[in-house]
Amino acid sequence: MYSGRLIKGIGGFYYVHVEDQVFECKARGLFRKKKITPLVGDYVEIDVLDHKNKKGVIEDIKSRKNELIRPSVSNIDQAIVVFAVTQPDPHLSLLDRFLVLAESQRLNIIICLNKIDLLEPADYEEIVHTYRAAGYKIILTSTKKEIGIEELRHELKNKTTVFAGPSGVGKSTLLNHVHPGLKLQTGEISTKISRGKHTTRHAEIMEIEENGWVVDTPGFSSLDMNFIDESDLHYYFPEYSFHLENCKFNSCKHLNEPGCGVKEALQSGKISESRYNSYVQFIEEIRKHRRY
């Protein structure tokens, strides 16, 4: 038996990194019976069936530290959420959705705003202010001008990091600049639909120097809130934590209740209106799903 890490899964085949080798493996049928699906990022035990052709079978999946739903990866330390300041224009509600997912998994979160060479700082400073005020670290990057690349590289050391964001924002290009040896496929934005051409087709975890692993993921365009409990949602907006104790009721949902500390903070400008609108939208989605 050999210990390794599942780095890629395609069509029922799982590729497991063991020291300096990669084995193509199938999973034992018992996982299917237990309704357990091996995930990229899993630490596994494999039985090697063919050393020469590097074939094996996954015998055991170690307990997961955490598990993301979309992208489907496990054992992640942090998330770097990549959005472009333009081409495509940033969809802040989608950014907030991924932040909620990452917060629910207790991940360290960094927001990377890419392609800053295409705009003047004044054109994206409101976004920067909104998310820094919410407590997030932001790295501003441009691969064309090599801005922020070294800072990004530093954040990847000794961690397993999931890179995620919409298609076409430059995730793969950024990773290629951070670690040229990855040689990830990249593509241009489709001018017709203003989205990326989905050059990354599946989640894959890759080892880089300084004991780091990165997960390049397919771009996503939607992320539902079905997995979130309505009563927990406000905990996943970190800026709310400073105002919850000012709510009159412990069960306050921060919608129409009297004496709401969050609404008071919103009215005084301490909480972003766009962030609050995302919160209300997510509450409505959770409630709608619960009715069905």
Results as ranks from 00 to 15, higher is better:
residue 7 I to A: 08
residue 159 K to E: 12
residue 37 T to M: 10
residue 166 P to L: 04
residue 8 K to W: 03
residue 68 L to K: 03
residue 161 T to E: 10
residue 120 E to V: 04
residue 289 H to Y: 14
residue 88 P to A: 12
residue 292 Y to S: 12
residue 73 V to Y: 01
residue 284 E to F: 12
residue 86 T to Q: 07
residue 148 G to N: 12
residue 232 D to E: 14
residue 107 L to C: 08
residue 241 S to N: 05
residue 26 K to S: 15
residue 206 M to V: 07
residue 21 Q to G: 02
residue 232 D to A: 12
residue 271 I to F: 00
residue 64 R to C: 03
residue 95 L to H: 11
residue 272 S to Y: 00
residue 20 D to M: 15
residue 237 F to I: 10
residue 44 V to I: 13
residue 114 N to F: 13
residue 65 K to D: 06
residue 132 R to M: 14
residue 177 H to S: 07
residue 79 A to C: 07
residue 23 F to A: 02
residue 244 L to K: 05
residue 275 R to W: 02
residue 163 F to S: 04
residue 211 N to A: 07
residue 109 I to Y: 01
residue 89 D to A: 11
residue 34 K to T: 10
residue 235 Y to G: 09
residue 263 K to G: 00
residue 233 L to P: 02
residue 103 E to P: 03
residue 86 T to A: 08
residue 40 V to D: 01
residue 199 T to P: 05
residue 125 E to Q: 14
residue 15 Y to T: 08
residue 59 E to A: 10
residue 246 N to A: 01
residue 49 L to G: 11
residue 116 I to R: 04
residue 38 P to N: 10
residue 12 G to S: 06
residue 206 M to L: 13
residue 178 V to T: 14
residue 189 I to V: 12
residue 166 P to Y: 04
residue 11 G to N: 08
residue 205 I to N: 02
residue 266 L to R: 00
residue 136 Y to K: 14
residue 100 V to I: 15
residue 140 L to G: 01
residue 21 Q to C: 12
residue 27 A to I: 13
residue 61 I to D: 10
residue 150 E to M: 10
residue 276 Y to E: 00
residue 22 V to T: 15
residue 173 T to Q: 11
residue 218 P to I: 10
residue 51 H to G: 07
residue 75 N to P: 06
residue 32 R to K: 15
